[in-house]
Nucleic acid binder design. Sequence first.
DNA 1: TTGAAAGCGGTACCAA
DNA 2: TTGGTACCGCTTTCAA
Lengths: 335, 335
Amino acid sequence: MKKSTIKDVAREANVSIATVSRILNNTGKGYSDKTRQHVMQTIERMGYFPNAIARGLINNESGTIGVLFPAVSGMVSAELLHGIEAAAQAFDKSVIVCNTLSDPDKTEHYLQLLYEKQVEGVIFANARLTSDFQKMVKQMAVPFVTLAGTSEIEGIPEVKVNDQQASYDATQYLIKHGHSQLAMVSGPSHDLIAGTPRIEGFKQALADANLPCKATQISWSHAFNFEDGKHAFRLIMAHHPETTAIFAASDEMAAGVISEAHAQGIRVPDDLSIIGYDNTKLAMMTVPALTTVSQEFDTMGNRAAELLCHSIMGEDIESLSLKHKIVERESVNKQ
Amino acid sequence: MKKSTIKDVAREANVSIATVSRILNNTGKGYSDKTRQHVMQTIERMGYFPNAIARGLINNESGTIGVLFPAVSGMVSAELLHGIEAAAQAFDKSVIVCNTLSDPDKTEHYLQLLYEKQVEGVIFANARLTSDFQKMVKQMAVPFVTLAGTSEIEGIPEVKVNDQQASYDATQYLIKHGHSQLAMVSGPSHDLIAGTPRIEGFKQALADANLPCKATQISWSHAFNFEDGKHAFRLIMAHHPETTAIFAASDEMAAGVISEAHAQGIRVPDDLSIIGYDNTKLAMMTVPALTTVSQEFDTMGNRAAELLCHSIMGEDIESLSLKHKIVERESVNKQ
DNA sequence: TTGAAAGCGGTACCAA
DNA sequence: TTGGTACCGCTTTCAA
């Protein structure tokens, strides 16, 4: 059974396709109420739905935005995406997801694909939009927004929290509660999004409190995973058994620290305090529950998509720095 | 700067649009090598990319599939989506994600949207495709696949694990290791996907082992969350303090049980054994690490998308039951 | 090897 | 209030 088109409807209802189109688009004028009724019935009876592709062709609107993730698996992307989808939905846009795996070639490929599909805007999430893509981005001539990431390309708004400030606050929180033997479990130090800024925040807080900061107090890893956290913690304890408090650059890493501490017979928070980063659902599931820096990913995704949609509608938009806060649970010993 | 069209390219290259089209589509004949070279250069120079919308209109191919989730937040959907995207990508399809929030109206709305956008197939994930949508599904006349869910509508293939069998195995695993005082922490009992079948599997395993099964041994909750797990466990211990082993219907619930057990001074696995369900990343992060039934969500998503794409290409496809296995970690006391 | 032209399913302008 | 029609960007058939 072939799909019926506007032509079929027009024929069935004995009117012109122009009339059907007007009724479909609720122009308000251009048809009598009687005609309207009749046509609507015909449409209903035939099970006709307009072809969005044809519509898109004529007014150059695909009603679609693209979202690029390094990987959609994982709590963080999931929550970001959830927020994005909700906002997009409110603006009548569909969301196409793309998994770049952090591969520049794949990224380029996806951008091209999105271009060809005539997306009206792009959210570049969780990664750095390098100048390698500058040409493509300019060519696409649609709004871009980076989300929980950064852009080397000028004029692209960023939606994120101030990572350095948040790390500073987290570290200060530990210091405020009487800790002076701190260490940091970090992700890749060259990661310009979640690596460098968080490390800088940590260092700065130590400096401002006149606490020393040896290189060995910061242990970095290939990624931000549970296993990385475990491993990094082992390294830290090898160098600094005197450590009483740890700042972890992600909740997953913090969970790794908790797990490894437990394995070593170190009690949390009695012997060792831990503060995490992200406030994913995981944070309330650890034992003890994790005190952590909250990034509201759902909200971030939402705001990014909102911004993008505004920009699509021609409004001027600017970068957005979302506020962070420390969510207190039970992993920090408050002296 | 307006986007250039095939017309612009043709004019610039001094050939007809037909020739450009042929070259673009690599038909292999219909142009000389010289023309080809020249046109390709022009295309490159102008930064031209074909308009997929216009292409789609003519050959009725949107190159897009739709995926409906009750909620994309959460580990499970994230991993499913990851697998889906990877397979879709291999078949040159883009993925539009939709968040139904388990709301029938929203679901209907999304189906309609996907219909209008001319998607070539739909994956209905993590939910039950009720007969309410039968009319719409038939009308859309594109392949559907349910993923980690079920369908009331006939002829729609399902990709999932055998939940009842997996639950049976999990329960039997506990029994095999010497436990006879079992209880189950379940999700909604009326949930035809992850509720009923898992409960049945649990009951069956008890029956086959000649163990009694009182209603109070199964505690059900509104959802499958951490908090639900905590709460359900409290209820169980109130009724059955003699319980030595728990089967939880999700890893999150199991994490809740672990957390609550810890709060009550019950040692895991010494006093209480726990087996979970899903094998999400969470399972290795709990302390002790969770023994659990593995569903490979990434693979499931992958297979579902593969199947769907095959179906789109006209092949006959059938339901797929993925194998489960028990991943042994440290939450079960093996006597 | 090439180009002209008829659509694909709609929208929107203009005339009736 | 209506209908006729040009056109959106591309593919494809048919002639040249």
